[in-house]
Amino acid sequence: MSGLRSYIFKAAVRLLFFLVNVFALYLLLRGHNLPGGGFIAGLASAIALVLLSLAIGLEELHRVMRFDPMRMAAAGLAMAAVTGAAPLLFGRPFLEHFDAHLTGLPLLGELHVGTALAFDIGVFLVVVGIACKIMFALGKSTQRLRALVAEEERRYSAPVEQPIEEEPPIRAATNPSTPSPHVS
């Protein structure tokens, strides 16, 4: 009974996830001419992911996603920066954009494809990546799960560090106002 309901719920969320992402893509592509753009699309997409995580749980989502959203964000930043730096190769100023006008496309009608779009996609990736990363990290950590998986811990922390979800050190736990032991 409950299994069926949760199955329906999950299916509905998946459908919603798909729809929101399509909408986000649409927002991203039309951004140059109508309200929208990489940032808005990225946030919409991130919210869709959050919805999905609510439905299937953070652990499960991590299994499904299989990649580190932080890397996606870094890739997005790299994409934006490389898009900007590409004109340097031709001796043009940093961030100069070039474009082409495409007409007669299905669904979208006419489309303006330019390096500005690549830049905007970079923005999109950064926003999706970091919004997901911080939401998931905080969500896991506040639920007393390990915020970072082992591989991420290797990448984002020093070997001598420990996750904060554990009990804090003795000194802080007792009373923050006690002087540190090295003085007494």
């Binding site: 890397r71 870094a74 930043l77 790299a78 920066a81 730096a85 290797r154 990448r155």
Partner: peptide, 11 residues
Amino acid sequence: FTALAALFWGR
């Protein structure tokens, strides 16, 4: 770019 490279490099 150095920061990005270092990020991707990981450890």
